[in-house]
Design a protein around this nucleic acid. Structure first.
Lengths: 341, 341
DNA sequence: ATTTATAATGTTAGCGCTAACATAATGTTA
DNA sequence: TAACATTATGTTAGCGCTAACATTATAAAT
């Protein structure tokens, strides 16, 4: 006589037995309480607590073709920028029934597409992806996902479903404008990895310098190597060696800016008097450095928090006309660009 | 007539149909190929590719009471130390059938216990947890998990199942020894968060100073606030204000050490001549700073990589007598403790 | 030559939950 | 008062896969 061995823990049938109702009523009490009378709800909740019942997420996902997972794909696990957004996502989802499935695309669009396929195959409740430059196939998959999708950390007018972030182009332009405004004349750019968002920052930066008649393509240094503090130091040393007239740099992120500061210190170049430095994102360390570093402040935690709020609203069926939320950025001026001239 | 609507994608029954075998043979071909003849395996793989079949992870987990998930719980999402280990885990699992379920315990043992319960309720293939100071209940849950369990980032002689890391006590002691050896006399400690591993480092550090007759409890500054570069600057400023004779500090991590460096620079204190600074973990930025910062180097990527290798070996049934792997640490001496005296 | 063991493949039932449909009681509208 | 609608609860079947047992062919041992 065949007899399957279960997982050993209480099932919804046990709860139904104890509460004196059918299994589907227990299921409704837990998933859609308004469909069950007060009286039965109380009996069911008592039984749930008494039996220490926890719904079997795999069975539920199989039966409903939907799971309690929110798929989140980030391009880097070691980049502090995404860590803040991820922390917000975890903080916002923790009290609810959802769990995060985290994927690392390593800044490769094809890897992101593959992860999207894998995650969608598991019927997630929602998807969060970084940026707005997915492959066409990935975009189509997400459009047909049948669940809320949020693109974070960038902004545009053509969201797959919803989008929350800020304009990297405008951020780059604000950085360039600021350096021009502070009187710097031979202004460079240090960029690593050069993913789509870094490119946008560079384009915005160029735009600002071109408007001021100060754009010099020879002062643009980029590499596809991944970003680091050491790389920032290295790139500014190389640039200074070639162009000793350089008097300011916009670094495409804060690690690079910190490295640029270290590079100047080693070379005995005075920041901000002889070199202005501005970074992007405004990580915590920028205020602590000596001199403190100017940066384009972005609220990465707020982005993650808002993304989850939008998902929850869409899952709850709330009409939301605001599918695109621009949380903007702010120039955070500090000592590294505040020269007295 | 009741008719359930499936997820719409091909199922194992479709593959079996196309290959002319039964569903369990397809299942065996994918999960345990050695149990299926070469001839049938080829036919099955052809059918899988032709139909673009992807196994339904929830159905498999329900039927077998085991899922393809590796549960990983870290105490922080924004701490670079865990990010390196996490990146290794993702890199090692990516090519196989496993997926990571990431939980954030926020340095709270009770939260970790709750996450362990939740993850174990989903029948993971393995569990990776940080450190060795789980609650008794969590320890028991993991001991009875029925799957491989690895404790990472610490070392001890009483693993739940397996353990890979290094001794924080010995690392702290090495840091203390080094400062004594470099001739510093009034040596302090800056510690944030003060989780169990930070405590171990402090104990080791004390041990080294006590051996050299240089331990001064008045020079120990700790706080339960979470670690940051700014906090490092703040704490050293406070300590210097109280004890102007301070001539070296061991910071319980690199962010604090960098902050301490910035604090000294602001105060016009010369590093390393008037102040020695040593950190812990040896993050990438330590080499780039000016002066470069000494640190206790730990190979966090190797820890994650090894943990996954141990899991795979145990899942493959390979006898492993090495349940505890100590990957050690190394003193990475740089300018910040290399004074000429 | 016979018996036992092994390898490969198939069949049955069910893992735990819920979609879809069914039923009954109660409320609303004409 | 009758017809229709809504609410609350129950029943049936199955979502997709695999544990457990069954069968058959082949190999190995006696």
């Amino acid at each position: 006589m065949r007899k399957r061995k279960g997982a050993g823990r209480p099932t919804i049938a046990d709860v139904a037995d104890k509460a004196g109702v059918s299994t589907i009523t227990v299921s409704r009490a837990l998933r859609d309480p308004s469909k069950v009378s007060d009286y039965l709800r109380r009996k069911i909740n008592n039984a749930v607590n008494k039996l220490n019942y926890v719904p079997h997420s795999h069975a539920s996902a199989l039966a409903s073709t939907r799971s309690n997972i929110v798929g989140v794909i980030v391009p880097s696990l070691t980049n502090n920028v995404f860590a803040d957004t991820l922390r917000a996502i975890y903080d916002e989802l923790e009290q609810g029934p959802f769990q995060v499935q985290l994927g690392n695309s390593r800044y490769v669009a094809a890897d992101e597409e593959r992860l999207i396929r894998t995650f969608l195959g598991q019927g997630p409740s929602a998807m969060i992806v970084a940026g707005k430059d997915q492959t066409d196939a990935a975009r189509e998959l997400l459009q047909n996902a049948g669940c809320p999708v949020v693109q974070v950390m960038d902004i545009g007018d053509d969201p797959i479903d919803m989008m929350v972030g800020f304009s990297h182009f405008e951020g780059g332009r604000a950085a360039g404008r600021h350096l021009v405004q502070m009187g710097y004349k031979r202004i460079g750019f240090l960029g690593a990895r050069m993913d789509p968002r870094s490119h946008s920052r560079l384009e915005g930066f160029k735009d600002a310098l071109q408007s001021g008649g100060l754009y010099d393509p020879d002062l643009i240094m980029t590499t596809t190597v991944s970003s680091s503090v050491s790389l920032g130091a290295e790139l500014i040393e190389q640039l200074i060696a070639r162009r000793s007239d350089l008097d300011a740099v916009f670094c495409n992120n804060d690690d690079m800016a910190l490295g640029a500061l270290f590079g100047c210190q080693k070379a005995g170049i005075c920041v901000p008097d002889d070199m202005g430095i501005i970074g992007f994102n405004d990580l915590e360390m920028m205020a602590a450095s000596h001199p403190s570093l100017t940066s384009i402040h972005t609220d990465r935690y707020a982005i993650g928090k808002r993304a989850v709020e939008m998902i929850k609203a869409e899952l709850d069926g709330e009409a939301t006309d605001q599918k695109i939320v621009d949380l903007g950025f702010e120039l955070q001026q500090r000592e590294s660009t505040s020269r007295n001239k």
